[in-house]
Every structure is written in structure tokens, then in C-alpha cells.
């Protein structure tokens, strides 16, 4: 035991910043929130134990909870595949061996660096408002646009577009993955008369599967947790007509606007379980579509 500890000591030493942070800062609040999720707590009086009450209310009577789920799932379903597809498409363009690739990489990564700032929210409002740039462009080809952000039917898709626009980090990971595919495989395929699309589906995609899988898991978790962009663009309310009521926005409002900390904690745990289930599903499915070159079977 002593020897094992001594052997692993450097590992633990390197892990220590994270371990310290986790045990001192994160673990306590996590356990507290689990406890609070079974209580009614307004931050003024002491928490009162109500058993499964919060969860029961959530699933049986809270219509906004279901709306928040609907909004979040819609967002995840569109934003994740579109962002990944767009990131992959750009990565493939950049992989063509341009001399100025470094510059393009930086430019394309820029939107991701800007994150969900106020500036981006204002930019998005400018782009998608009734008199915004998008509508001006549409007008040029004779299409009359709507006010994309205040229209409950379209508002979520402006956020999907924002997510797609911030494709930088999966793009960089895809680019690294594409660089890792030996060029002579494509040459062999070229000599074998493999059409471009088949080269993509039969060589690029399968060989990129580990990277696609990694990006998929990361982006799915990220999308479920999306908060800032929705919060800023909907002015923190989830408006219009709760069409931007992301799960996290709803959770935030319950906690810090209405001070229903117990209920907000229960919401947080439900979100954690949802993310856990989706991640587990991704991992379970991976053995059918992810090929690792170095595993042995």
C-alpha cells in the first residue's frame, strides 16, 4: 500500500490543484444542493424537509419545467449536429494545406473566444431584429423577414445560429484529427476510383470517429448547459413567450429571482441526470461506430 502510494505520489501531486479545488470548493456545495433539493428553502429561513415534494411538483404540475425541457432539447437537437457539421466542413476546407492556414485558424476561432458576451448579444440583436442585417439581405432577394428574436417561433433558431457561428473549438479538434489521417489512404482510394463523397463517408468519417465522438460528448454537455447567450438575448427572462426559456435560465430564475433554492437544486440535479444519461448513451453507442486504431479485439 505504502509502495503504491509512493509510486503514485507524483500523479497525485499533479492532480492536487484540481483535487483541492474539488474537495474544498465543489464537493460541499454539490452535497448541499442534493440535500436542498429535498427541502423548501428561501435563503432567509432554514431549509424545511419536504421529501420528494420538489420533484413531484416538477414532473406533475410545473408546466414551465416541461417548456424549459422542450426549449433545451430543441436547442441541443439542432445546435450540436449543426455546429459539429459546420466545424467539420470548415476544418476540411482548412485541411487543404493553405499557406495562410494559421491566420484562418485564428480568424475562425475568434467567435468562440468572444463567447457569449454583451457585445455578441447586441450584435445578434442587430443582425436578427426586424430592421437587422439579415432582413436587409433577405429584402434584396425579395423575401420579407420577421423579427427573428422577438418571434417565439424563430427566436430559438437565432441562438442555434449563434452556437453554429461559435464553431471554433470543435473545428480545431477536427482539424487535428484530419491531420492525423494518413494521406496515402486517400491516394490509394483515388487510384481505386473512389468518388469524393464515398471517400468522405468511407474513409474520413470512420477514421475521424474517435474525434467526432469526443466533440459530440463535449458539445452535447455544453449545449445542455447553455446559459449566457440565452440569458442575455432574452433579457434574463426566457422571453418571448418562454421560447428562450433554457433549462439553465429557468433554474437561475428560480434560484436567484424567486429564491426557491430547494426547487432550483432539484432542477439542477435533474439536469445533471439528463446530461449523464445522454453521455452514457453516447458511450454505449460508441462501440458500434467509433473505431480506434490502437485497440485490439
Amino acid at each position: 500500500m505504502k509502495r503504491i502510494l509512493a509510486r503514485n505520489a507524483p500523479g497525485y501531486l499533479f492532480l492536487s490543484p484540481w483535487l483541492l479545488g474539488f474537495f474544498l470548493l465543489a464537493l460541499g456545495p454539490i452535497l448541499a444542493s442534493l440535500y436542498l433539493s429535498f427541502t423548501r428553502y428561501d435563503m432567509v429561513s432554514d431549509p424545511r424537509w419536504i421529501g420528494w415534494g420538489n420533484y413531484e411538483y416538477m414532473f406533475t404540475r410545473d408546466r414551465r419545467f416541461w417548456k424549459a425541457l422542450e426549449v433545451t432539447f430543441t436547442y441541443v437537437a439542432f445546435a450540436v449536429p449543426l455546429r459539429l457539421a459546420f466545424a467539420l466542413a470548415v476544418a476540411m476546407l482548412l485541411d487543404k494545406g493553405l499557406k495562410t492556414i494559421g491566420l484562418y485558424r485564428a480568424i475562425f476561432y475568434l467567435p468562440s473566444l468572444l463567447g457569449a458576451s454583451i457585445a455578441i448579444a447586441i450584435l445578434w440583436r442587430e443582425l436578427f431584429s426586424a430592421t437587422g442585417v439579415v432582413n436587409q439581405m433577405l429584402a434584396l432577394v425579395g423575401i420579407e423577414g420577421t423579427d427573428w428574436i422577438t418571434n417565439p417561433k424563430t427566436s430559438i433558431y437565432t441562438l442555434v445560429m449563434l452556437a453554429v457561428w461559435q464553431f471554433g473549438s470543435p473545428m480545431l479538434i477536427f482539424l487535428a484529427g484530419l491531420r492525423g489521417i494518413p494521406k496515402d489512404l486517400y491516394e490509394a482510394a483515388e487510384i481505386d476510383g473512389t468518388p469524393r463523397w464515398r471517400r468522405f463517408t468511407r474513409i474520413t468519417l470512420p477514421l475521424l470517429a474517435p474525434v467526432i465522438f469526443f466533440n459530440l460528448v463535449l458539445q452535447t454537455i455544453d449545449a445542455f448547459k447553455t446559459f449566457s447567450s440565452a440569458f442575455i438575448i432574452s433579457n434574463g427572462t426566457g422571453a418571448p413567450a418562454d421560447s428562450l426559456l433554457f433549462f439553465t435560465v429557468y433554474l437561475f430564475n428560480e434560484a436567484f429571482k424567486f429564491f426557491r433554492m430547494g426547487y432550483a437544486s432539484a432542477l439542477a440535479w435533474v439536469l445533471l441526470i439528463i446530461i449523464g444519461v445522454f453521455t452514457a448513451l453516447a458511450f454505449l453507442s460508441s462501440k458500434y461506430w467509433v473505431h480506434y486504431d490502437n485497440d485490439r479485439d
Partner: peptide, 17 residues
């Protein structure tokens, strides 16, 4: 692909998957 030839590469270039 239209030259009706086959090539064997130094790295073998087998599709690993």
C-alpha cells in the same frame, strides 16, 4: 482511377477500419 493501374504503397495504405 482511369489509368487502369494499381499501386502498392510503402506504408501499405490499408484502410485500418
Amino acid at each position: 482511377s482511369k489509368r487502369e493501374l494499381s499501386m502498392v504503397f510503402q506504408s501499405y495504405a490499408l484502410y485500418p477500419h
